[in-house]
Design a binder for these strands. Structure first.
Lengths: 237, 237
DNA sequence: CGTTGGATTGATTTAAATCAATTTTAGTGG
DNA sequence: CCACTAAAATTGATTTAAATCAATCCAACG
């Protein structure tokens, strides 16, 4: 987290006109609480490629992603990387019990987060069980996704992995921005490979194979789903 | 869940002499709460191989594992299986937000659970934020383990997978029952394979390879860790 | 324009899967 | 207690999906 690239808007932002207001953690707060909550968080910007927090870091903050995409990953000592998820606006990051983040988080492209210092946030939650319930809900949802991803990593072929990824990513973008058959892929092929437990070459080959079969079209910054049904068949639910 | 093999002890059990009392969800309850809590759960026994709940089932109960080992898994339509975890005494099962279990759970060998009907349990938690916090803590801990397992599934070799599994399983048994270099493995080789994203043959070969190298000894119902340091080196933290 | 990092494509290798027997263990009934 | 069966585990031979090695290719950018 280089100070040079971090811009802090000292104040002048309001939860009431926050883009993720309705589906982030804070959706459980009433207007009065929201006004108090407003003072706890501050918007921080990161450039693409910047690390927001690292696995070994002791947790000093929680983050609510407001804008942009992040990759969440773990590294093995020899440098092998597993991306455990991609974060999109509305996602809440930093929950842990060990006092340390258990994964690292990089901005992919520019990112805006709402950052909360651990202690005051903790105190705020303390007295608001409905917020705690909301946080718990998010944790359980993530757990369910994590288990789905274990199945993908442990038991699916490269073709199935890629097809499943494209559909799931499209679905997330759909929930965020509405329907579109053009699926923006802001992450690199290497990121996709590290998410799916594959190599960059295998991901690339699978993309071109899908394109040759007329199932997708590789476009600038993403892909276009020409035959969603075929992709679903490949993903073999 | 065949009724024939399920034995319900109608009453006559007390939280105060429960084996998992100190490290399960209920560890957050004070004596007065515990007496109330006692009436919510009832002990249920399952035989080895019995299914306690299935992925598609709508959730009607939560479970606290009191005794025995369970495998938690997901199936693909074509029968491929990924075991997402093994449950040991003290583990709390059934949390979800969709109203459906998102994995299935089988008893491995005989099992005793403390079963809670969803609604009364939910009402009990409602008014006890410290219990909710405890549940949240368990969910976050599981999430962290799930991410570790993703790294294993996506980025580790067969040798590393097996070595990592043996160490992690030993550690869990250690926390439960104290130190021992004999590691009981109540699950089958197929279970281990489905947990590690391998085939039974690869698991078997890896075990014999470790034995040939004098690192472990395969014994009745488990393995003996002859050279823990060597196994740790193989696991390559 | 030339440089550079990301992506693609092709040739080859390899780790693990698959296929195919045994062997070992556990369970059952005489 | 022992013979018989069935399931689980091991071992070996062979195949294969994906990794690795090795060039390009391409798009962005100073």
């Amino acid at each position: 987290m280089k100070a040079s690239v971090v811009t802090i808007e000292p104040n002048g932002h309001f939860c009431s006109d926050c883009a993720v207001r309705d589906f982030a953690v804070c959706s459980s707060l009433d207007p009065a609480e929201l006004r108090e909550f407003e003072h706890l968080g501050r918007r921080v910007l990161f450039d693409g490629g910047e690390t927001v927090f690292s696995e070994e870091d002791s947790t000093t903050s929680f983050y609510n992603l407001l804008d942009g995409v992040m990759r969440l990953y773990k590294l093995l000592p020899d440098g092998r990387r597993q991306i455990v998820g991609f974060a999109l606006p509305g996602d809440f990051l930093g929950m842990n019990i060990s006092g340390r983040h258990n994964f690292s988080a990089d901005a992919i492209g520019g990112v805006t987060v709402c950052q909360f210092a651990k202690a005051p946030f903790g105190r705020f939650v303390e007295s608001r069980p409905h917020l705690l319930r909301r946080i718990n809900e998010l944790a359980i949802r993530e757990l369910s996704q994590a288990r789905d991803h274990m199945v993908l990593l442990g038991r699916r072929s490269a073709d199935e992995k890629v097809a499943t990824f494209l559909l799931a990513w499209r679905e997330r973008l759909f929930l965020l921005k509405g329907a579109s058959d053009t699926v923006q892929l802001p992450m690199s092929r290497q990121d996709i490979a590290d998410y799916l437990g594959l190599t960059i070459e295998t991901v690339s080959r699978t993309f071109t194979k899908l394109e040759r079969h007329g199932v997708i079209e590789i476009v600038q910054g993403g892909i276009s789903l020409l035959d969603p049904a075929k992709v679903e068949a490949l993903a073999a639910a």
